[in-house]
């Protein structure tokens, strides 16, 4: 297959020339998935923490709900969000369909349960008496939570990395609610699918390669943060 060789060559050429169309798609990918990952973390980490440290009625149900969310097929999420955002759907008046915001919503719904579940694991893997010990040292509930999060930093950063990875890899849902509109909602994943469908394999490979590079860079930054925490200085 000569495609791979040609594809790689084309990809490198586009990257080096900083082709504006390609850059635009890459930047949009970073914006949409970065924002979705951020929101997922803001929602998911406190949720995972609360599930790990608090006992309250309905906790079991909420844990199951999060686990279901993790296993939910993303394409179903895309369908659900579409149904909500269609003109004649319940949220149709907000006119969010076929905008980047719709994609952010879908990606959050897909990534947040993963972040919550992994955060839960990270906190739960600490000694189970640690919350008690922190309270015994005079911490308020809030202070104890902050300390637990700090102590579970390694696991929590893994949760963030997983959340971002999930958000940025999403294709089906992003396509369904975004419409893959040129310059507006076309991101690296949907652009790759588009070019494959057209038979432009070289361009598809270059998008794929750029996506890999992008994900690698973000994960590398987060990993540096994670490992910095390991040295125990703060």
């Amino acid at each position: 297959m000569t495609y791979i060789g040609q594809g790689l060559g084309e990809a490198v050429r586009l990257l080096l020339q900083l082709d504006p169309a390609v850059l635009k798609v890459a930047w949009l990918t970073l914006q949409v998935s970065g924002l979705a990952a951020l929101i997922s973390v803001v929602l998911g980490v406190p949720l995972g923490c609360a599930l790990a440290t608090r006992r309250f009625r309905g906790r079991g149900a909420l844990v199951s709900f999060v686990n279901v969310g993790m296993g939910m097929p993303p394409v179903v999420v895309g369908l659900l969000v579409s149904l909500l955002l269609w003109r004649y759907g319940p949220l149709g008046d907000w006119q969010l369909l076929y905008t980047p915001w719709a994609m952010v919503i879908a990606q959050v719904l897909i990534a947040a349960p993963i972040v919550a579940s992994l955060s839960f694991s990270a906190i739960v893997s600490l000694d189970e008496r640690l919350p008690l010990q922190l309270l015994a040292l005079g911490a308020s509930r809030l202070q104890a939570d902050r300390l637990l999060i700090k102590e579970a930093k390694l696991g929590l950063l893994a949760a963030v990395i997983a959340g971002f990875g999930r958000a940025v890899s999403e294709v089906g849902a992003s396509m369904m609610v975004g419409g893959n509109l040129k310059d507006e909602t076309r991101v690296l994943t949907t652009a790759t699918v588009l070019e494959v469908g057209k038979g432009n394999y070289e361009l598809a490979i270059s998008f794929g390669l750029i996506l890999l590079v992008l994900v690698y860079l973000v994960v590398a930054v987060l990993t540096v943060l994670q490992q910095a925490g390991k040295r125990g200085c703060s």
Binding site: R129, Q133, A136, L147, G232
Partner: peptide, 11 residues
């Protein structure tokens, strides 16, 4: 102040 059998410490 509570002292447990195995002291639990933070990093």
């Amino acid at each position: 102040a509570l002292v447990l059998q195995d002291g639990l410490f933070l990093t």
